[in-house]
Nucleic acid binder design. Structure first.
Lengths: 211, 211, 211, 211
DNA sequence: CATGAATGAGAGTTCATTCAT
DNA sequence: CATGAATGAACTCTCATTCAT
């Protein structure tokens, strides 16, 4: 007896709704997206959505957890594993992970939506902060500590480093996705990640050549 | 002899309205702000606002021109003047200018509001792009060229540099203003600017000491 | 067991709203009528009206279909059935139907409202034209053809006849309903219809008496 | 010393304004027309218009007086002069005058605008009634009396005749101007007037031929 | 006479959320 | 669980009219 698509996984409903929400938010933006569109895309009625999420804002928060939060936790893992041994490689991996994520519209959607809605809703801001930013900040702090301890990194300010590492990722997303200003000469995200890493690691000023 | 409210300084009206708009947008966000609140703050009736601006969106665009546009043009000037002689100092000045601006809620308001509304309105996005981003991008391009020509800078990718220089400024604004995550150890924006410059110029990896 | 206001007769809602719209439009005119008044009269909230009609204009168009459109189709039927056999009687019946309709404020409301709004909205004009005028014109054309073919009518111009038959009905409505100039000596609409038919059929000039 | 156009005839201002109003009302309709547009077209400021007319509605009423009222008085004259001698010719002239007027957008503008606004404003309705309709009705009554007295016309009901004579003129205007349904086969207004007169005078039913 | 800045009431439409069924 | 009809608050923009100058 074949199950219909609709009844297949009743326990998967929340995820189905979030998938739909991601798609609709991504296409139209949070404010422009109508809950009914999300419901339809998920094969549900408008009212049913409210059985799973108490509000539209809550959907965004759930999306943040599922998407950006997962990414942040992965970044944390990456640092935890890689930083003690080879902080420079860990940093490269980290930046590449973030930049690649920001280049993928589906993954960058949550941060982008939060950027748009956080000013309106302190709850959304606080949630993103706790689910993403605090984790990322902690990871960067550890990476920095490890690098400094092993002599790979200079002892710079942690918050400055967070801005220098995270900022380009945000900027890349904002410029590419919102302002349609993708990089002209570097088309591959991985290549761009490497260019950014080189800059972050070695700076703009040329190093003295060993005589 | 007190002047009546009417016709007091008719030629100053647009600026008065923009001042009020800046304040109200800053407090409540663009979408949440009601035109009537702006009008009241400017000492006008709702309808009078529309004598000077055709729409709410137009107010934001005007704000962009007045605030971020002016900043972008100043940055361009700074680069035009300083880059040929001393690109490193020019870059330091530039970053300090941007970072300080982003630390001031009144100046960072326009970019912040645009970040929120650009996704909804292609016109706002295009306006900001042409009034701010294109100018900034051009200035950074010139700064880079000058620095490379004089041997002060490595020949890095221009768009990567734009992300590395602009990103931390955006990140600083977003983290400080929206997510209430100001730097912990560096409280002075100028100091933070210097820290960022050091990182951007010299990188995270320690330089070989001259023996 | 009293039903709650909600969901009482969901399938009758559109008609209930149209009834209310007819009443409110009739009392206040289209432009002056507020959607909320219509909603209240229909026992609904303002927003609920938009579940059934996409706009205020659409309500007027629906009213046209329901009221004047039905009348036009009835006129077409009448002609189709009666004209082949006895065109003169068919014409009398037709005029009487139209004149009586125009004498009833509820039935003449739609044409009257369209007369007011068609200048503003090409859509409303086109809708009325296709739903009412084209049908009436076609019917009159057929009536004329049948009458001419059977020798009952002179072969006059079709559009002139439409003006001579339809014009008095419009004039009657306009004079009676808008300008409060009802006929002085003939109080019964049917009687007025007969007087008009006599004029249309036999003309103002007396016929030669058979010797 | 050449006078500027603006200052040439200060006493002609009201007429200049009415000319502008006629043009703007005709192009956009009464409700859609903005007083400022009328003022601009008349070479005046918005406020100045109110030195000559107390309200927008008053402009329409003045237009009625100047345009339709003049026509009605001309019709009255025509009847007063022609009806006693040759009522049939007088009626033909009258219909031709009315039909031709209704075919000219500039002349039919006032009745058309009144048709649109009378439902909203009893004052406009009353004004049109007294300035146009009552006069026309009186003239038709006299024409009918004269024709009946001289044996040229059958003794029909006066209000019915008014509907039969005026109706086609209104219908012609409405169909042609508002619903874009001009006559297909008769393109010349004078010809259409003749066709209408033939119908009104001799009826649709063929006359017995004198043996 | 003339200006034009200012007023302020006004209404259609949208949509997140609720709840009777 | 699910539906979908219903709610009701919110807000921009328009424009006839006024009046200080």
């Amino acid at each position: 007896m074949p199950q219909t698509a609709r009844k297949r996984r009743p326990e998967a409903r929340p995820d189905e709704i979030l998938d739909a929400a991601l798609a609709v938010f991504g296409e139209q933006g949070f404010a422009q997206a109508r809950v009914e569109d999300i419901a339809k895309r998920a094969g549900l009625s408008k009212g049913a959505v409210y059985l799973y999420f108490p509000s539209k804002d809550a959907m965004l928060n759930a999306l943040v957890e599922q998407s950006a939060g997962k990414l942040a936790r992965a970044a944390e893992q990456l640092v935890a594993i890689g930083a003690p041994g080879d902080p420079e490689t860990a940093l490269r991996s980290l930046i590449r992970m973030l930049l690649t994520a920001m280049s993928d519209p589906d993954i960058s959607a949550a941060p982008r939506l939060v950027l748009t809605e956080a000013g309106r809703s302190p709850e959304i801001a606080a949630h993103y902060r706790s689910q993403v930013l605090d984790i990322a900040r902690r990871a960067m702090g550890r990476l920095l500590e490890a690098g400094v301890a092993s002599g790979h990194f200079r002892p710079v300010d942690r918050d400055a480093l967070m801005r220098v590492m995270g900022g380009p990722c945000i900027a890349h997303m904002v410029l590419t996705t919102i302002f349609d200003l993708p990089p002209k000469d570097i088309t591959d995200p991985a290549e761009m990640a490497d260019a950014l890493c080189d800059l972050i690691l070695f700076g703009l000023v040329p190093r003295e050549e060993a005589a």
